[in-house]
């Protein structure tokens, strides 16, 4: 029990460096929501129940131009389908825990908590569930609070993009990617950099033919396949 608590606190700590990203994007979302005529309660429920950064922006953008509900739901499905791949990649690290624990871990999985967990997995094969809960729950609360704060700020600010807050998310992805690459052994690094290159090429190609969120999924799966085939 004591051990679990320590792990949970460590998870909270490991989440702290990512909070700035959540605050930036959460606030930007609240501002965008408020300027799309989405009420404070609706913003809170979106953050509480959908809890998916980029999808929430897209929902507001589609909502404001009166897109039919099934189209909005289908778009959200495609945008968030990447979590399925992320889940597949880290779920085996938690297979020793109960089903209840695993469902809870999946429920709160985000790009960032996945990134933090995946960078731990370069050094170990199993992860502690309490640690992951600490990480997930901190991120979740921070997202909720900052989107509410943003919604209130939104009464005064109309364009969050001027502050560069929207760039917090890609900046965090850059850091997570580079930290993971730096943890690799020199021999494997060249191979992984090549895989990064393939991913970029696939993104260019797929961007011509499918919407960008689908391009993310297809490029990831294609580049991972080439990665396996070209591994020595």
């Amino acid at each position: 029990m004591h051990e679990d608590r320590q792990q949970f606190i460590q998870g909270v700590r490991d989440c702290l460096p990512t909070l700035l990203g959540y605050i930036g994007i959460g606030a930007a979302f609240g501002i965008v929501g408020a300027s799309s005529n989405v009420s404070l309660l609706e913003i809170a429920l979106l953050s509480l129940l959908v809890y998916a950064g980029s999808a929430q922006f897209i929902i507001c953008a589609l909502f404001v131009v009166h897109t039919p509900i099934p189209v909005i739901v289908a778009t959200t499905f495609i945008v968030n389908l990447r979590h399925f791949l992320m889940g597949l990649a880290i779920a085996p690290a938690f297979s020793q825990y109960s089903m209840k624990q695993n469902v809870l871990l999946g429920t709160l999985l985000t790009d960032e908590t996945f990134g933090v967990a995946a960078s731990k997995l370069t050094k170990q094969t199993k992860l502690n569930a309490s640690w992951m809960h600490g990480l997930n729950i901190t991120a979740y609360l921070c997202w909720l609070l900052s989107s509410l704060a943003g919604a209130m700020l939104g009464q005064w600010i109309e364009e969050p993009t001027v502050f560069g807050l929207d760039f917090a998310l890609p900046a965090m992805f850059v850091a997570l990617l580079i930290i993971q690459l730096q943890q690799q052994a020199a021999g494997k690094l060249m191979h992984l950099l090549a895989v990064v290159g393939y991913t970029i090429i696939f993104m260019v190609v797929f961007s011509f033919v499918v919407p960008s969120h689908l391009a993310v999924l297809l490029s990831t799966m294609s580049a991972a396949t080439i990665g396996v085939l070209t591994k020595r």
Partner: peptide, 28 residues
């Protein structure tokens, strides 16, 4: 994955997912 464990080639493939998906999200 609580019920079934994956074959080796699949876990190999999944080990590339973090790096590929982060790259794709940046490039997006």
């Amino acid at each position: 994955l609580k019920k079934v464990s994956l074959p080796k080639w699949m876990t190999d493939w999944l080990s590339y997912i973090p790096i590929c998906i982060l790259t794709a999200l940046i490039v997006q």
